[in-house]
Design a protein around this nucleic acid. Structure first.
Lengths: 222, 222
DNA sequence: TATATTTGGTGAGCGCACTCATGAATTACT
DNA sequence: AGTAATTCATGAGTGCGCTCACCAAATATA
């Protein structure tokens, strides 16, 4: 029963400095984890990145990662939350867009998302593959990602509502946000494989397809 | 090559057992695995079912499971393949449907799928949760499930093509199979939570929504 | 029948994501 | 200040899905 175990006294690196308060340190560690994880995701891919490696790079114990994120998928999800929030804010806070046509708002939305993702292209690629696996808790239709998706769809619905007058609503209008969600996934794939300079092919594709889509929405009254 | 024959005391190793042929045994084991897995999925849920338990119930070693299926997800996928194939066959082989309107064919398709799934409701529930996780390799958008999804979408596209004349094709028609895929997922969820007798609410929902959807497709020309 | 080749079941073992009892560092209370 | 209460980093441990070297049984070849 009595195990002669090497009990290493848990040594904590006490920063002698005017050590930040708890909350401060918490925020800092959270950022260290995200930064370490994103770096590894980008260089090694999502699956090949272990939580142990993330912890090592963030200079914390492996278990600590799970004090901040419920799962490895959650770390990636956190990143996508930032991506979506940032893009929605970009649309909302642009006064020029206030009275712009719907297709322009949607273009800005997707464009902002892609800009945010740009530095992490490799990560996005591996994460998307991972996410599209039928069992992925990170997937674009997953339970875990539901809240984020819901927020995004709600926002798109809002944009549509303020551009398409009520009486024109058709069953298609009701489905539009869902369709747009799929559309965004398609655009992401297009973007990932777009090797044109500055991803201009993707931008052109967005422009054209959004025009077609929105005009279909307008015509589709009743 | 040149045989230096050695004479050894003959060792009879042949077990008098009714040794089945290899192929026969293979098929049998495969079925044992599927049956054991489905049983456990249904009673304990997908996640809570371990491959060890499946092996134990199928009376084989754990490793053997992976000689027949690449992963645990693949076992579930195999089940869904049967489901889809069966439903497509039900539509194809029903002569009455030959000249029936599109909405009727689609209704039969989905209805057949639901009938097949009926005895495994609990399993479907847990599997769907599992599958909708962003990282699930079983998920409805996963890489692994891609082939099955492709087959299904191709079939739906065929049905649409033989009902909607070419010149009426619009961008919407192009997207229709993808939309229908989402629609099917929605219907599955509806069905899972439908506590009405004989799931009649789901059937009514299917009837109404397919009528609306198909007529939209017809009107949406050009 | 005797020997060579192939098939495929086996289960210990691996690396993984994730858990948990522990106790040190911090905060709250007096 | 001292002391109690709380927070939370820690890392060995757990159980998982899955791999692999092994070798017996089945089959092919003689």
């Amino acid at each position: 029963m009595v195990a002669t175990k090497k009990l290493k006294p848990a040594r904590r690196k006490t920063k002698p400095g005017p050590a930040g308060r708890r909350a401060q340190s918490k925020q800092e560690i959270r950022e260290r984890i995200v930064k370490a994880a994103l770096g590894l995701f980008q260089t090694k891919g999502f699956d090949a990145t272990t939580t142990k490696a993330i912890a090592r790079k963030a200079k914390i114990a492996e278990g600590t990662v799970f004090n901040y994120f419920k799962s490895k998928d959650d770390i990636a999800l956190y990143f996508f939350e930032q991506e979506v929030d940032q893009a929605m804010a970009a649309v909302r806070e642009n006064p020029r867009l206030r009275k712009a046509p719907l297709e322009e708002k949607l273009f800005t939305l997707v464009h902002s998302q892609l800009e945010f993702l740009a530095p992490y292209e490799r990560f996005i690629g591996t994460a998307l593959i991972h996410a599209l696996k039928p069992a992925s808790p990170l997937g674009p239709f997953s339970h875990r990602a539901q809240e984020l998706r819901h927020r995004y769809l709600g926002f798109v619905e809002e944009l549509i509502a303020e551009s398409i007058p009520r009486p024109q609503h058709s069953p298609l209008t009701f489905l539009a946000p869902e369709v747009f969600w799929i559309y965004y996934l398609g655009a992401l794939l297009y973007w990932l494989y777009d090797s044109s300079e500055g991803k201009q092919n993707t931008l052109a594709f967005l422009d054209r397809s959004l025009n077609v889509g929105v005009s279909m929405l307008r015509r589709g009254k009743r």
